[in-house]
């Protein structure tokens, strides 16, 4: 009886602590926001009242929800392709080292080109549609995945590779059963970077060239001098990025042998 009560108290404690963890950042963000408003005395059209922003969010929810779906598609497809490209290239580099010499300089170059330039060039070459936006997100996001995966695939303890050779494991077995699991913590770490970056870059690209998505809503807000709408989009984007980061982080901990020691 007492044990059960203890368990229930424990569960409630967990709920309370989760609620606290979620509430605290929300409170601190709005607290800071009001603090800036009252201390800086900036007018409302520079830093709108959070109330107005939330109101704008509610008023424009249909527009934001609809455009959010566009952003989600671009960011999601770009994120997936970043991984296909990043992990694919890393696998190629490890299995065929000469390919690394051939391709890596190009990959580094692409990574170092500011994506605004990539946007401009691709928009002229391929138009301003879905493919261009996804390509930009992919090109801006694949590099961390590539580098981390490559590092992970090569992070295998050489003594384990000796063991696999002694046991006469095939290259495929070594890859799937040793190299890939070894690289998971590295791949997961890359997802935390690429996941949020995909969203930010999708919005930035939309802002630059598109008539759809949250990025375009920002333009609409700016054109109409509706600061609240711009802030509302920022809020949605920030919350979404945070959720994506948290989900990746949670999944990462479940997948990550380096962090999970549950028996």
């Amino acid at each position: 009886m007492s044990e059960r009560r203890g368990k229930r108290a424990g569960a409630m404690g967990a709920v309370a602590s989760t609620a606290f963890k979620v509430l605290l950042p929300v409170l601190s963000i709005f607290g800071l926001w009001y603090l800036v408003i009252y201390t800086s005395e900036l007018p409302r059209f520079v830093i709108p009242d959070p109330k107005m922003v939330l109101l704008s969010l509610v008023e424009n929810r249909a527009l934001i929800a609809e455009q959010f779906m566009h952003t989600l598609k671009v960011a999601g497809a770009g994120f997936l392709l970043s991984n296909v490209l990043g992990i694919g290239l890393a696998m190629l580099f490890v299995s065929l080292p000469v390919s690394r010499n051939a391709i890596m300089p190009a990959a580094i170059t692409i990574r170092n080109v500011p994506y605004v330039i990539i946007v401009t060039v691709l928009a002229l070459a391929m138009g301003d549609g879905f493919a261009t936006k996804v390509t930009v997100v992919t090109l801006a996001g694949f590099f961390p995945v590539l580098v981390n995966t490559y590092r992970g695939l090569r992070a295998v303890d050489p003594i384990v590779l000796d063991r696999m050779r002694i046991l006469d494991a095939s290259l495929w077995e070594v890859f799937v059963k040793v190299r890939l699991p070894y690289s998971i913590p590295f791949i997961v770490a890359a997802q935390e970077i690429t996941g949020s970056a995909s969203i930010v870059i999708a919005i930035a690209v939309e802002w630059m060239i598109s008539r759809t998505g949250l990025g375009y809503v920002i333009n609409q807000g700016m054109m109409a001098y509706e600061g609240e709408l711009v802030y509302a989009v920022a809020l949605v984007a920030a919350v979404f990025s945070f959720v994506v980061y948290s989900v990746i982080h949670y999944l990462g901990q479940r997948l990550n042998w380096a962090e999970s020691n549950d028996p």
């Binding site: 003594i159 384990v160 000796d162 063991r163 002694i166 006469d168 699991p181 070894y182 042998w257």
Partner: peptide, 19 residues
């Protein structure tokens, strides 16, 4: 002999898989 999987090697450091 290795291809026939007749060898066993006990290494100095553990060659176990961390996961």
């Amino acid at each position: 002999v290795r291809r026939q999987k007749k060898l066993g090697l006990v290494s100095q450091r553990p060659a176990v898989l961390p996961w």
